[in-house]
């Protein structure tokens, strides 16, 4: 089952965060003209379905001192990338780990893992640990450090209902 139109309205109303009031789900429900119990039940159902990965505080790594944001990219043997991706995704310093298509000749990397270090030396050590884990299944890799955050907002689904 996929989210229905009412679920999507809840997504739109909550994607920028819950209001910081004692009864946040009631506030969302009032805004949408729904019953508070319905909002909570639908969010629980979306969590069960995996549409909601988690509910909680989303920390700002950069402001907390994790200044070196490294996008590590790897060219990993297609036959082994699923098993290795699962392992890399479990490393404690990896915040995202995705399989993406190669676009040869300009882009030859298929595995992406985001690492966060207090400085580049720490992020580079984290990349080295990933490289060691990938071992001979990995043909090449790079770390792309961010030099500037030009825009960062929560997920925004543009629609007629959004502001």
């Amino acid at each position: 089952m996929t989210p229905d139109p009412i679920d999507l309205r809840i997504v739109e109303a909550t994607q920028a965060g819950l209001p910081l009031v004692a009864r946040p789900y009631h506030a969302i429900a009032e805004r949408l003209g729904l019953a508070p119990d319905d909002v909570m039940a639908r969010m629980a159902r979306m969590q069960d379905l995996g549409a909601i990965r988690r509910i909680g505080a989303v920390p700002n790594h950069y402001r907390l001192g994790w200044r070196a944001n490294g996008m590590t990219v790897w060219d990993v043997d297609d036959a082994r990338v699923d098993a290795l991706g699962e392992r890399i995704g479990r490393l404690p310093f990896v915040s995202h780990c995705y399989l993406r298509p190669r676009r040869p000749p300009s882009w030859t990397y298929n595995l992406f893992a985001m690492v966060h270090g207090r400085d580049r030396a720490e992020a580079t050590r984290q990349a080295d640990l990933i490289r060691a884990e990938l071992a001979d299944a990995c043909r090449a890799g790079e770390v792309l450090f961010s030099t500037m955050i030009l825009k960062k907002t929560g997920l925004r689904i543009a629609s007629a209902a959004a502001e």
Binding site: Q15, I55, F112
Partner: peptide
Amino acid sequence: LDAFRDMRKDGLVGRIGAVYRTNTVGSSCL
């Protein structure tokens, strides 16, 4: 509530809420 408000004001927390799975709602692309 005060602690969360302070953390959000200081930018330590972006938001408190649901993290939606990519492509479950909408379609995204790097």
